[in-house]
Amino acid sequence: MTILTFTLLLLAGAYLAGLVGSLTGLGGGVVIIPLLTLVFHVDIRYAIGAALLASIANSSGAASAYVKEGITNIRLGMFLEIATTIGAVVGALIAVYTPTNTIAILFGSILLFSAAMTLRKKNQGALLVGSNFANKLKLNNSYPTTNGEVSYRLKNVGAGFSIMTIAGVFSGLLGIGSGALKVLAMDSTMHIPFKVSTTTSNFMIGVTAAASAVVYLQRGYMEAGIAFPVVLGVLCGAFTGSKLLPKMDARVLKYIFCTAIAFVAVEMIYNGYNHKF
């Protein structure tokens, strides 16, 4: 295969990854790693580097729109970024001592979890009574809906913070945004309305990924020949996705994609178990 063929194939693959990632809310990074390792047989460490870049591009691109609409809770994001960045640095440190096969197995497991999280019921309601701690940290806020501004309050800040630290570790270790874990912390634990938790999680992914990306850049995980088609492909795909999303019902696609992702996850675990990475 020449560099040109590889670039074009990967560009197309990354475009689809970005498109599907943004339509289902899983993010492009999650799709990039199996694409690179299982289809293109690229070393998982290069795949992790590329996926981190895809996560940053995706997050920053989408966040710019949500922040403007005022849905993102910037204070909450900043507070929880303490947890995710520390976690990400720890994850990037552990990564050196973790065999690539273990990383593949962990990745497969997180992928299964993410697929299940995407299909679960979402927390739509806003909490009326929050905890004292949330009040002190000024985390309670409001967000615009079709029926006007809706105020919401938070609880279980400590538990949410802890889950965020774990999300950060996985993000640093596997090179993904771990959006599913972030939403679990905000949506299910802190009782934040779904729209706020997804956009705030998305907002945080860029900073979380950047915290480990600088370490990986110094370690040589970011390969220019792979980064080039991945970054551009995922960005264009995510952009198309954001334009398509309001016009279509993504529910059926979500089910199909999550089933497909589950198979991919099992293959990653199987290959990791058989030391194929």
Binding site: T2, I3, T7, L217, G220
Partner: peptide, 23 residues
Amino acid sequence: LLQSGSLALPHYQLFIGEKAGLK
């Protein structure tokens, strides 16, 4: 792509890491 598009693909299945430079 203009400079090296027609060259054979580097061995991405092997991780070279830092020795490759540009970090």
